[in-house]
């Protein structure tokens, strides 16, 4: 390729300009190669950082993961062992709460956005979702503290669930809208033409055909809020004991990590590493499941 180029130039030009051009081509090719290697190096660098983080957390965390870690309560500092059963239960309860609160509402918003695509209200709803999505989680924590915790008079798992639900809302609503937009119009029209009422058409034809996308959105949203700590600091607050009462403070895995990581005790650090590892595995499984669902049930029309 290179030889061909130089030959062509040789035919068309005199010797001096040929030399200049060959030099130029060479430097261009070298620049191209350098850039390519820099790009590859950058990409590899990021994967190395990721591998380092994953490896580090796994190495620190895997040693504290055992049966007792899952079924026992945390022990006071100085005593080795103990577990984070209260945090695992708390995380599951609060995620369940937030799913119950957020999913119906966000699916309704998503359906609305896919139905009314160009009205004024839908424009403002979209803007609202964008604001909510970019909102720092700590701000959500403050507002839920004012709205729920101050009214109830105490920190509670319920307020934590509400804070997480607000974080889930934009993710699920957006993915519902995007999926339902891909459902072809003819499907809806066919259903309406058969005399099926509008609400039944939406609930039994449109939403089910976009179910995989909605489900993926929910899983991604759960994965996003599962590791959230900031909105829980002033809502569910944390609790060293086992608690399943929604009106009382409740522990969660991210809170355990935060509280124990900043403590000076070695035993608590190893509990926090175990909790980090558990949390990361949980989030990884959620993300992989979401990916499998979206790949297997992809809408094809």
């Amino acid at each position: 390729m290179n030889n061909e180029l130089t030959q062509n130039i040789d035919i068309n030009t005199d010797k001096i300009s040929f030399l200049i051009k060959e030099k130029k081509i060479k430097s261009r090719i070298i620049k191209d190669k350098i850039f390519k290697y820099i790009t590859i190096a950058g990409a590899l660098f990021v994967s190395l950082i990721l591998a380092y983080i994953l490896f580090y957390v796994a190495k620190q965390g895997i040693s504290s993961i055992n049966w007792n870690f899952i079924i026992e309560l945390p022990k006071p500092p100085g005593e080795f062992g103990g577990g984070v059963s209260n945090a695992i239960v708390g995380t599951l309860i609060m995620i369940a709460l937030s799913v119950i609160i957020a999913v119906p509402l966000s699916i309704a918003i998503g359906v609305y956005l896919s139905e009314d695509r160009k009205t004024k209200l839908s424009y403002w709803v979209r803007t609202g979702l964008e604001i909510l999505q970019g909102m720092p989680s700590i701000s959500i924590g403050i507002v839920v503290y004012v709205w729920v915790v101050l009214q109830m008079g105490s920190f509670s798992a319920l307020s934590g669930g509400i804070a997480l639900a607000i974080m889930m809302l934009p993710v699920v609503a957006k993915s519902t809208e995007e999926t339902l937009k891909m459902v072809p119009y003819s499907l809806k029209e066919a259903s309406l033409a058969l005399g099926v009422p509008y609400y039944k058409t939406i609930l039994k034809v449109v939403v089910p055909s976009g179910l995989s996308g909605i489900l993926t959105g929910i899983l991604i949203a759960v994965a996003r809020v599962a590791g959230e700590t900031a909105p829980l600091l002033f809502t569910s607050f944390g609790n060293p004991f086992m608690n399943v009462n929604m009106m009382k403070p409740m522990n969660s895995l991210p809170l355990v990590i935060f509280n124990y990581a900043s403590s000076p005790y070695k035993e608590w650090h190893s509990l926090a590493w175990g909790a980090s590892f558990l949390l990361m595995v949980m989030i990884l499984i959620l993300n992989i499941t979401a990916k499998i669902i979206s790949r297997k049930w992809k809408i094809k029309f």
Binding site: L50, A226, G227, A230, W273, S276, L279, M280
Partner: peptide
Amino acid sequence: NVIKTAVELLAGIPSIVFGFWGLFA
């Protein structure tokens, strides 16, 4: 696929774990 997965995984790590890792590593 390797790099794409790496970037996606990086986005999935909770910020508290980043903080913990940063503090100790």
